[in-house]
Computed example of a mutant assay.
Amino acid sequence: MINQTQPQYFLEKVRNSFHSLEGKKVTVFGLSFKPHTDDTRESVSFPIMKQLLDEKANVVVHDPIVHLSKYWLDKGVTQCSDPYEAALESDIILICTNWPHYEELDWAKVRNIVHHAFVFDGRNMLEAGKMNELNFNYEGIGYP
């Protein structure tokens, strides 16, 4: 499981596939620190988003409950109410919260709408074999 000490490790995994994140559309799935809550106090999503913005990535987020504050919206983060809209033309998808919504997505549909098929699963919640069959570059990081 990704915790507060691991955002850099998580992003290093991403950087191993993309030399630069500048101009890349990065979709972050999950803002709360765990599913079924709007509690973001120990969420890794926010330090990850900060680093992505520092590296000039285009950051788009989805969470079924949490709404971004004006602070993040003013920094240029886009929030979508639909995960497919968030993933549209994405270069990289980061799963930061193991919401059942993300496990239940039609990943074949997601594969057809992304720009690059890179998924970094910080909750290790998806089946690697299934993701590879769909031709995703999938890396599970951490534990469910």
Rank of each mutant, 00 (worst) to 15 (best):
E22G: 03
Q51N: 08
N124G: 11
G23P: 13
E89H: 14
H62P: 06
V44W: 05
L68G: 06
V119P: 08
V66L: 09
E12I: 07
V66T: 07
E127Q: 09
L94N: 02
R123W: 02
H36V: 01
V59P: 07
L52F: 08
L52Y: 09
I48E: 03
E85C: 03
D82W: 08
G142N: 08
E22A: 14
K109M: 06
E22Y: 00
T97N: 08
I92M: 06
Q8L: 10
K109E: 12
R41Q: 03
E89D: 15
E127H: 03
S17V: 03
C80I: 00
Y102P: 10
I141L: 14
D39S: 02
K50C: 00
G140W: 08
H36G: 00
V44C: 15
N137A: 04
L11R: 12
V66S: 06
M125Y: 01
D82K: 11
K75T: 06
S81H: 03
G122A: 11
V44F: 07
Q8R: 09
K75Q: 15
I141E: 04
F29H: 06
A57N: 01
M125R: 03
R123T: 02
F118W: 10
I2E: 10
S32M: 05
S20M: 05
N58Q: 13
L31N: 06
V66C: 08
L105H: 02
I92L: 11
